[in-house]
Design a protein around this nucleic acid. Structure first.
Lengths: 216, 216
DNA sequence: TCAATAACTGTCCTTATTGGACCATTTATG
DNA sequence: CATAAATGGTCCAATAAGGACAGTTATTGA
């Protein structure tokens, strides 16, 4: 983040709005670029171009490429967690099956609007790296633990399919995100356009139906 | 492929075995590299290094980077189709559900041994390109059509879940391949190691159970 | 209002890497 | 053993890489 020359006792001047805007533009552009071409395959100039910003501003705002990656990943994952949590809270009074279904729909809807989320994981999953390690401990493990716990309960009630709950969780995750990461190709192969909300809804319902066959 | 200076009437000399070997080494290395870093993010030198071969040999054997990509993709997809077909034939006398289950298991097993198959699709799916177009028309559409046809029948028998069969096919595909494309990350997050055959088997059974709930 | 500082622009540098060309050399073939 | 296939070694021109830095503009807060 932008270093400021802090004078001794003086209160530092506050961050300007235009700064926040360019940072956000850079973060969006970075996420898009990194998810398309991976960390190594993405140049800071490409990111700056997508953001419509001069490339030295990356150094200014984020120190270097690695920090920019981390900030971009943090942003999309935080929003994602918030989105899931919101769905979870909204369905708090509901029965267990409906609670989980609500989260699954939120997952699909978020992945449809932000396919970069899953693409980023796939890019980093191609090889062990410090970035993957960070992603796992910071974002994925907490998410996994929370969802697996709920899945277990659903399995005991016969609502979710039997088997290793961790495996089931990952299956679910790969399904929701994976199909949307393939959106461009699927449109070409099968003519299904996930830009159309009705197709995303159909996908969500199919996933719910397949993974939560039991009723409560 | 290696051009040869064909003298008028003379029969051209046959290809040497060592040539085939280096071509295969290059194809394997290319597939690995392209699936990890995408087309743009992969250098021909990287491929040559992985193959343990001098990089000008790429030009010699494959003309250029694009042709090498195509040859590598062709190779893995052809093997894949053959593998599916084999499973299909082996289960030819079985009931419809068991036929499909057999293909699904083959899909998972192949994807586990060749995660590059799915990673390559994901890489190319990040943006429209001539390569994606080629992949779709040459390999994906034929596969899709064949499987969708069978899925429809299973849906009519109540064995497969209802809904758009094309959507179901893609769900299935994204599930099988997608989870194995995430193998490195899943091992770190959940401790599930898909290098162990028993975990791959468990995955295959879970997929069959989830997507073919009905019995015949 | 006005100095201080945050934010941004323009430019340059050095280094590495890119895909591919080219000729000499080695190896297999018929 | 003559010939062609296959490979090795080297070079190149282009350019793309991450980052440094001094100067300029905009905003802030007293």
């Amino acid at each position: 983040m932008a270093e400021m020359a802090v004078a001794e006792g003086r209160a530092p001047r506050k961050q300007q709005q235009r700064s926040v805007q360019t940072q956000n533009k850079l973060l969006d552009a970075a996420l898009e670029a990194f998810s398309e071409n991976g960390f190594k395959g993405t140049s800071t100039r490409d990111i700056a171009d997508r953001a419509g910003v001069h490339h030295p501003l990356i150094t200014y705002h984020f120190k270097n490429k690695e920090e920019l990656w981390r900030a971009a990943a943090n942003r999309v994952f935080s929003k994602f967690s918030a989105s899931l949590l919101e769905a979870r809270i909204a369905a708090d009074g509901q029965k267990p099956r409906e609670r989980m279904a609500s989260m699954m729909r939120a997952y699909v809807q978020y992945a449809a609007k932000n396919p970069a989320l899953h693409k980023l994981m796939l890019q980093e999953s191609s090889r062990e790296s410090s970035r993957l390690e960070w992603l796992v401990t910071t974002h994925l493990q907490p998410l996994s633990e929370a969802v697996v716990k709920e899945l277990k309960l659903l399995q005991e009630s016969g609502i979710a399919p039997a088997g290793d709950p961790a495996l089931l969780f990952n299956l679910l995750r790969a399904t929701s995100g994976g199909i949307l990461a393939l959106a461009t190709e699927i449109k070409a192969t099968s003519g299904i356009d996930f830009d159309k909300p009705e197709n995303v809804d159909a996908l969500a319902e199919m996933i719910v139906g397949v993974f939560l066959p039991g009723s409560d």
